[in-house]
């Protein structure tokens, strides 16, 4: 049995976000961000429903990643912009982030990488929980290896385990599966959908099928300054089957929207 197989089999002991901190709705009010003096978006309002996956598609350079970074607190927002939970609190300390590259530290073992957050905050890392999570993503045997010894799919699963280890109610993901081959990508989508169930997730992606498999809401961001269209809401619980006819019909619709959006982007 390869590690990829073990990730698929059986029910996995993923914990829901702890009850004290149930996944909140996330609201972005009047987001504005300038890039070299040109507003990427202006007065943009955006809501991520609580405990649901929101997917964001759009042409390259439209500002998807920038919007995600703004929510993560990584991009300096304009004075008028506000990012809050549904209850009005700040999002600080309630977010976990997963990027396009795995961002694993090459000198540390997989296990140490999973526990990085605790180390950085000066907390005592929970080794047992980290091992359990590695088991859950099918990487138990790789716990003491260095990232360089892992395949691309395994590395991204290690990054997923690190994200889960943070146990935050809001998860922001910036094209986390885009560098993987087709089969690994499908498996990781399934794994992520189960592992992150019940959390408020934002997934920025270039892959319309990925968005339709995973998203409760699928938005297309287009134009400059960028606007959001009315979301698509695919039916059924994620991860949806890629071969579902209803999904494929939506796929055609979404591709048409993306083509239209691409035509508006000033070069």
């Amino acid at each position: 049995m390869t590690p990829d197989d073990s990730a698929r089999s059986g029910a996995l002991p993923f914990t829901k976000p702890s009850s004290a901190d149930t996944a909140p709705e996330v609201r972005v009010h009047a987001a504005r961000l300038d890039w070299h003096g040109v507003p990427l978006f202006d007065a943009l309002d955006f809501t991520m429903p609580a405990g649901r996956w929101t997917c964001l598609l759009g042409p390259s350079g439209v500002g998807k990643s920038t919007l995600l970074r703004l929510i993560a607190g990584l991009a300096p927002p304009h004075a008028d912009s506000r990012v809050t939970c549904g209850t009005g609190q700040s999002l600080e300390g309630r977010v976990a982030y997963m990027a396009q590259t795995d961002l694993l530290l090459p000198w540390a073992t997989v296990l140490e990488n999973v526990m990085l957050g605790a180390r950085l905050r000066g907390e005592k890392p929970d080794t047992r929980r980290a091992r359990d999570l590695l088991q859950a993503v099918g990487l138990h045997e790789a716990a003491d290896k260095r990232p360089a010894e892992l395949s691309g799919g395994m590395r991204q699963r290690a990054a997923l385990a690190r994200t889960l280890m943070e146990d935050r109610p809001v998860i922001l993901m910036d094209e986390p599966f885009s560098a993987l081959d087709a089969v690994s990508r499908l498996r990781l989508q399934d794994l992520a959908a189960r592992a992150l169930e019940g959390r408020t997730v934002l997934l920025v992606t270039h892959d319309p099928l990925e968005a339709l498999r995973l998203g409760h809401r699928v938005h297309v961001l287009s134009g400059r300054p960028a606007r959001l269209d009315a979301p698509l809401t695919p039916e059924g619980p994620p991860p949806r089957k890629a071969t579902d006819p209803a999904l494929l019909a939506l796929h055609a619709d979404l591709l048409a929207r993306l083509e239209a959006a691409d035509a508006e982007v000033p070069s």
């Binding site: 993560a72 607190g73 990584l74 961002l103 950085l120 905050r121």
Partner: peptide, 12 residues
């Protein structure tokens, strides 16, 4: 990317 990760994780 590592600096972003550390910031979101709340690293000093």
């Amino acid at each position: 990317g590592w600096m972003d990760l550390a910031r979101v994780m709340g690293g000093g």
